[in-house]
Simulated assay, not measured.
Amino acid sequence: MARDSEQEGRLTRISAFVFLHTEHAIYAALGMLLAATAVLALIDATGLLFAAIREFGGSGELLKIVDSLLFLLMLVEILHTVRVSMRSGKLTCEPFLIVGLIASIRRVLVITLQSSEVMHGALTPEREALFRASMIELGVLSVLILTMVISIFLLHRARDDQQVAGQE
């Protein structure tokens, strides 16, 4: 009987060791892929910036640059989440809220530019409907952004050690 429980304990330790190292290998591979994607996004954003400088572009080119940079910021924040998860073994929700916040802000910028472009020219029923839908989406995004900001604030306030996620 004691031998059976000793065998089960050994099997449990071996399986926990294998699963932990498999998890770390997957996190490492995911981190490398995210880092490569972030480098490519940075190169793309740099190319967009130089193209906008050469053409001295308008708001459309600037929006593409800002959109690309915000996407890059999202990738870096997700990469940070992977690093924290590997180091601490915990998955925290704060980085996901930050990524959601950045994504929402990206969408607000895109909607704002599209709405301003739509409003140039004659006001047709289609343009009016598009503008109305854009304003509703902006309202929903505003509530979502406010909710995420409050959630991040409450997470910081509730944390005992007052450290930012990833410094545990």
Score class of each variant (00 low, 15 high):
E94T: 12
L97F: 09
L75P: 05
S88I: 08
M86T: 13
V76D: 00
P95R: 04
L97P: 02
S88P: 04
V99M: 03
E94C: 01
L75N: 01
R83P: 00
M86R: 12
S88K: 09
T92I: 06
V99L: 04
L70D: 06
V82D: 00
F71T: 10
T81W: 08
S85V: 07
F96L: 04
L97A: 10
R87N: 15
L72K: 03
R87S: 12
L72R: 07
L91K: 10
G89V: 01
L70P: 00
V82K: 07
G89K: 05
K90S: 14
R83N: 13
F96N: 07
L73F: 09
T81V: 11
V84P: 05
R87T: 10
F71H: 14
F96V: 02
M86V: 09
R83Q: 13
I78K: 06
L91I: 10
C93R: 14
F96Q: 06
I78M: 13
L73T: 14
I98M: 14
L75C: 00
L75R: 01
V99D: 03
L72T: 02
T81S: 15
E77C: 15
E77Q: 15
G89D: 01
C93I: 15
K90E: 12
I78D: 01
F71P: 08
I78V: 14
K90A: 00
L75H: 08
I98L: 14
F71G: 09
V99I: 04
T81A: 14
M74Q: 11
L75I: 08
K90F: 11
V76Y: 04
L79S: 08
T92R: 12
V82F: 04
P95M: 01
V84G: 08
V99G: 02
L91N: 05
F71C: 05
L91G: 09
M86L: 13
L73G: 11
T92N: 09
M74H: 00
H80K: 15
I78N: 08
I78S: 05
M74C: 12
S85P: 02
H80V: 07
I98F: 03
E94D: 07
I78Q: 05
V84E: 04
L73N: 02
F71Q: 04
H80T: 13
M74F: 03
V82G: 06
L79N: 03
M74Y: 09
V82I: 05
E77G: 10
F71I: 00
V99Y: 03
L91M: 09
P95N: 00
V99F: 02
L91D: 06
K90W: 12
L75D: 09
S88A: 04
T92E: 15
L70I: 11
C93N: 14
V84I: 13
V99C: 02
L70S: 08
